[in-house]
Simulated scan of single mutants.
Amino acid sequence: MRESDFWQLVDEVFGRAYGRVLAREQVLPALDGRTPVAALEDGDEPRDVWHALCDALDVPDAERWGTDKYRQAPPPRR
């Protein structure tokens, strides 16, 4: 997953405005107490950051991949 894919999914799953606030402000234990934006800036894999955000917010697997290319063939989870 590329970082642009991460942002597309944030917008689709959470809505653009709310998703961007979550990414900037939601501190996640799975990311060592960092926000998703901080984790991406530190070089974490976008897929790992995406899963950490979805896990923290209890997003079901069926809803994690938006309505576009990922819904039909989600990338494998590490």
Score class of each variant (00 low, 15 high):
residue 25 E to Q: 13
residue 16 R to M: 07
residue 38 A to L: 10
residue 51 H to M: 09
residue 10 V to F: 03
residue 11 D to Q: 13
residue 24 R to T: 02
residue 18 Y to R: 13
residue 59 V to E: 09
residue 61 D to S: 14
residue 23 A to Q: 02
residue 18 Y to S: 10
residue 67 T to L: 11
residue 39 A to E: 13
residue 4 S to N: 09
residue 71 R to N: 04
residue 13 V to I: 14
residue 66 G to R: 12
residue 28 L to S: 01
residue 14 F to H: 03
residue 66 G to F: 11
residue 60 P to A: 11
residue 43 G to I: 09
residue 29 P to F: 02
residue 73 A to S: 05
residue 14 F to M: 01
residue 24 R to F: 01
residue 70 Y to R: 00
residue 77 R to W: 02
residue 58 D to S: 14
residue 52 A to C: 04
residue 25 E to V: 07
residue 50 W to R: 10
residue 6 F to Y: 15
residue 65 W to L: 04
residue 50 W to P: 14
residue 77 R to S: 03
residue 70 Y to W: 15
residue 13 V to R: 10
residue 78 R to D: 05
residue 28 L to F: 02
residue 40 L to I: 08
residue 24 R to Q: 06
residue 62 A to Q: 13
residue 55 D to E: 15
residue 10 V to I: 15
residue 6 F to E: 01
residue 38 A to Q: 14
residue 33 G to C: 03
residue 42 D to M: 11
residue 28 L to C: 02
residue 15 G to Y: 09
residue 45 E to K: 12
residue 23 A to Y: 01
residue 54 C to V: 08
residue 24 R to E: 08
residue 67 T to Y: 12
residue 47 R to M: 07
residue 23 A to L: 05
residue 52 A to W: 01
residue 40 L to N: 05
residue 76 P to C: 01
residue 37 V to R: 12
residue 68 D to F: 07
residue 70 Y to I: 00
residue 44 D to V: 10
residue 40 L to Y: 05
residue 14 F to E: 00
residue 23 A to E: 02
residue 72 Q to W: 04
residue 61 D to A: 15
residue 22 L to M: 10
residue 21 V to A: 04
residue 9 L to A: 06
residue 41 E to D: 15
residue 57 L to Y: 10
residue 34 R to A: 02
residue 51 H to R: 07
residue 32 D to I: 02
residue 61 D to Q: 14
residue 29 P to S: 02
residue 31 L to I: 02
residue 72 Q to M: 05
residue 36 P to D: 03
residue 76 P to L: 08
residue 35 T to Q: 00
residue 62 A to I: 12
residue 47 R to D: 04
residue 31 L to E: 00
residue 23 A to S: 15
residue 4 S to P: 04
residue 15 G to V: 07
residue 18 Y to A: 12
residue 17 A to R: 11
residue 21 V to M: 03
residue 49 V to Y: 07
residue 70 Y to D: 00
residue 45 E to Q: 11
residue 6 F to S: 05
residue 14 F to G: 00
residue 57 L to N: 14
residue 56 A to E: 15
residue 8 Q to G: 08
residue 56 A to P: 14
residue 22 L to D: 03
residue 16 R to Q: 13
residue 6 F to R: 08
residue 9 L to Y: 05
residue 77 R to Y: 01
residue 25 E to Y: 08
residue 11 D to G: 13
residue 47 R to W: 06
residue 37 V to L: 13
residue 65 W to M: 05
residue 26 Q to M: 14
residue 70 Y to Q: 00
residue 38 A to E: 15
residue 65 W to Q: 04
residue 57 L to E: 13
residue 43 G to C: 10
residue 3 E to I: 10
residue 77 R to P: 00
residue 30 A to V: 04
residue 45 E to W: 07
residue 62 A to M: 12
residue 4 S to V: 13
residue 13 V to M: 07
residue 66 G to W: 12
residue 6 F to N: 03
residue 68 D to W: 07
residue 34 R to N: 03
residue 44 D to H: 13
residue 63 E to D: 14
residue 3 E to L: 07
residue 41 E to S: 12
residue 48 D to H: 14
residue 53 L to S: 09
residue 31 L to Y: 01
residue 45 E to H: 09
residue 61 D to G: 09
residue 13 V to H: 06
residue 4 S to K: 10
residue 15 G to M: 08
residue 21 V to R: 08
residue 2 R to C: 06
residue 47 R to L: 15
residue 40 L to M: 06
residue 1 M to A: 14
residue 18 Y to M: 08
residue 39 A to S: 13
residue 5 D to C: 04
